[in-house]
Every structure is written in structure tokens, then in C-alpha cells.
Design a protein around this nucleic acid. Structure first.
Lengths: 197, 197
DNA sequence: CGCAAAGTACACTGATCTGTGAACCACCCA
DNA sequence: TGGGTGGTTCACAGATCAGTGTACTTTGCG
């Protein structure tokens, strides 16, 4: 059962418990017994619903990705100014970080699951490509010069702020400021500074 | 045995095997039996030398930190231009990435070891603080305006390039270009762009 | 009523994990 | 020559892990 569109209420509760535990304590460190216990359901139900721990891990990452994209879309849509919309993912990250302080779930998952054949790799790669592409589209829509280059820079800033988050260095505000200034600069002159040569 | 200054040859070989396996496959996923087998030594020797897997993990991170700092120091020292020296860690990262393609070992370790009491947390936090402070000192030495703010931005770019490395997006070149342009901008006018307000 | 789907209770398998005990061996050096 | 240090061999303990088999109960619905 690689994917499942409609999940039973018990399946949803198990997935919710898995999301919390996997993110907070790490995927390998959390056993299926613990997930069953935290969800109030039985291990048998877990296996009836998800088939294996690997499939549950995939469902965890897929669901988290869905929630994150939904938040970013909402934040972008709430911007009436197309220039402000370019850095809307940074605003979404600020809100997201209030309840998620253990860094990026996908980077963390890749750290624990080095096998490139594991579905987690595709999910993680897809998410970052999606964000890169979103930055590019938003930059182009705002009339930024060289949207591809700008998008790469914004992605690096975004991931850098996210990666340093567990270290409590409070890098997000400065990253956001720099991101906004890069967008402004790409509107003022014919391209972001430092691109020539 | 929390630290050990002088290690026996067998201890060095075990540590070398542990470094490779922990980084490539993840800490939790690698057992002590596998490390013993890869090093050609016995599990008994491993425990005689390191006492526990946790201590071996600490030794792994400490040794990796030492090698990375050594590379950065050498790269900085090889710069005759103090302005180029500010972004020398990005050049060091380029060389480092040729053989280390699984991202930051410390971020990865934090993902697997969520317990803040684990020594890995202190080692990882120390490393990032060290790099942030190095950026600050190099920026000040080069005459950059607002070296603290610049250092934070450079650290975010550095960590962003490192975090996205396993995703094969090739973000390091663009991160390095942007880092250099930020340094240049902080020399030209009274501070990096976008800092006012 | 009768059936099927969803979930429970619980024992259990086989593998793997960290860590230990104890006897033994090779080498170096006083 | 005789310890002492460093390493080996190998069995083993105790815990935990993913995953299964089976019989039972509940609930909703035709």
C-alpha cells in the first residue's frame, strides 16, 4: 500500500502521533510500539492501516509536506503586493517555527535514511524543487530581473535559516531582511548585485 | 572516559571507520559490530578504547570538527588579501564537498540525537558559534561595516549551501558569489545593503 | 437478522542491538 | 626472565526492534 487517499479515523490518529514523535525524536529512534501507545491505538491497527514502518514514514513526510505547502500558499495569497509575495515563504517559516523547532523534517529524514531508493528522498527533493520553483515564479511575477538566480539565493537563505534553527542562533530575522533587500535590488537595477562576471 | 588525548593505533583505526560509517549511513543505523568489522578490529577493543557507543559518537564529531577547522584555518591563511579571506570558508567548503556529499555531520547528528544533554549538541553548537565568530573577526579585519550582521548573513549562506548539498541543487557556487558581493558591498558603502530601517 | 469492516487483545517470532566476562596470546622492556 | 600492555576470541546476557497469527468484540448497514 504505497499511497492511501482516504484514511480511517484510527489511521489519522496514528499518523498524527507519528508526525509528532518522528519529528521530535527522530525516525529511527521511535519504534512502532511507542507510536501505537501515544495514539491510543494498537500496533495491529497501525500495521493494518500502513503495512510497514517505512510506509508510515512516507505518509508522515507526505502529510507534513502537504501542510507546509498549504501554509505557504495561504501566506502568498494573503499578500496584495506581488513584491512582498516573493518573500512570503519567509513569513510562513516564521509562523511555522513557533511550533517546529527541530529544523527541517526532510533534511533530518535524509540524514537518517541514507538509502537513495527510500521514498523519503524523492519526497524531500520534490519539496525543495517545489520551493525553488515557487520562488522563481513569484520573482518573475513581481518583475524581478534574473528570477532564476534570485530564486536560488532565496532558497539558500531559506534553508540556511531553517538548518540553523535548532542551534538557537535566531538567524531567521536577518535572513528575511537580506532576502527582502535582494528582491528590492533586483527590481531597482537590471539584476541582483554581484551577478555580473 | 569522556576525552582521550593519545589514542592507540587500533583506536585510531576504529575511529576512522566510525567516521566514515556514521557520516555515510547515519549514527543510529550503524552498529558497533559493523564498525569493528570495517576497522578490522574487534568489538572488545572498541569498548576497551572508547567505553561506549556514545563516547565513540562524541569522538567522531570532535575529530570531524577538528579536521574541518584545520581546513578552514589553512584556507584562510593561504589568502594574502584580507577581503578574500572573509569568504575563505566557502572555498574550504567547496574542497570539503568533493568528498563529503551527505551534508553537515553536526546538523545530521542533531537530527538523530534529540536529547539536548547529549554531548553532540554542545559540539555542534560550538562549531557553528566558532564559524560565526570567525566570520565576524575576518569581516572586522577586512574593514567591513557592521561585521556582526555580515557574519550572520554569511553563516546563513554557508549553512544553506551545506544543508541543500544532499539534494544536488548545486547551490554552493551561487552562495559563494552572493557572499562575496555582500562583503564587497559592506566595504563600498557604510554597511551591507538593506540594513537601514 | 446477518454480514462485513474496523479495531482489540495478546502472545510470539526472529533478528539485532549494546555491552560484558573470561581466558588467551604477542610483544616490549626492565 | 617475567610482567604489563594491548589485542583477540567467543560465548552470552538483556533489551528492543519490526512484524505476524489468531480469536474476539464492536459498529453500521442491507
Amino acid at each position: 500500500m504505497p499511497e492511501k487517499r482516504f484514511r480511517t479515523p484510527a489511521g489519522q490518529r496514528i499518523l498524527a502521533a507519528a508526525e509528532e514523535l518522528f519529528y521530535d525524536r527522530g525516525i529511527t529512534a521511535v519504534g512502532v510500539d511507542l507510536i501505537a501507545e501515544h495514539s491510543g491505538l494498537t500496533k495491529r491497527t497501525l500495521y493494518n492501516q500502513f503495512g510497514s514502518k517505512d510506509h508510515l514514514v512516507s505518509a508522515y513526510l507526505t502529510e507534513r509536506d502537504r501542510r507546509w505547502r498549504s501554509l505557504v500558499h495561504d501566506t502568498v495569497d494573503a499578500c496584495d503586493d506581488p513584491v512582498a509575495a516573493v518573500t512570503a515563504p519567509f513569513d510562513a517559516l516564521r509562523a511555522w517555527s513557533r511550533t517546529n523547532t527541530r529544523g527541517c523534517a526532510f533534511i533530518n529524514a535524509l540524514a537518517e535514511l541514507p538509502d537513495p531508493a527510500h521514498p523519503a528522498h524523492r519526497i524531500a527533493a520534490d519539496q525543495k524543487h517545489w520551493l525553488l520553483n515557487l520562488f522563481r515564479k513569484l520573482a518573475a511575477a513581481a518583475g524581478c530581473a534574473q528570477p532564476a538566480t534570485l530564486a536560488t539565493r532565496l532558497l539558500v537563505l531559506h534553508e540556511g535559516a531553517l538548518a540553523t534553527q535548532p542551534l538557537a542562533l535566531d538567524t531567521l530575522p536577518e535572513s528575511t531582511r537580506l532576502a527582502r533587500s535582494l528582491v528590492r535590488a533586483s527590481l531597482r537595477n537590471g539584476g541582483p548585485e554581484g551577478t555580473h562576471r
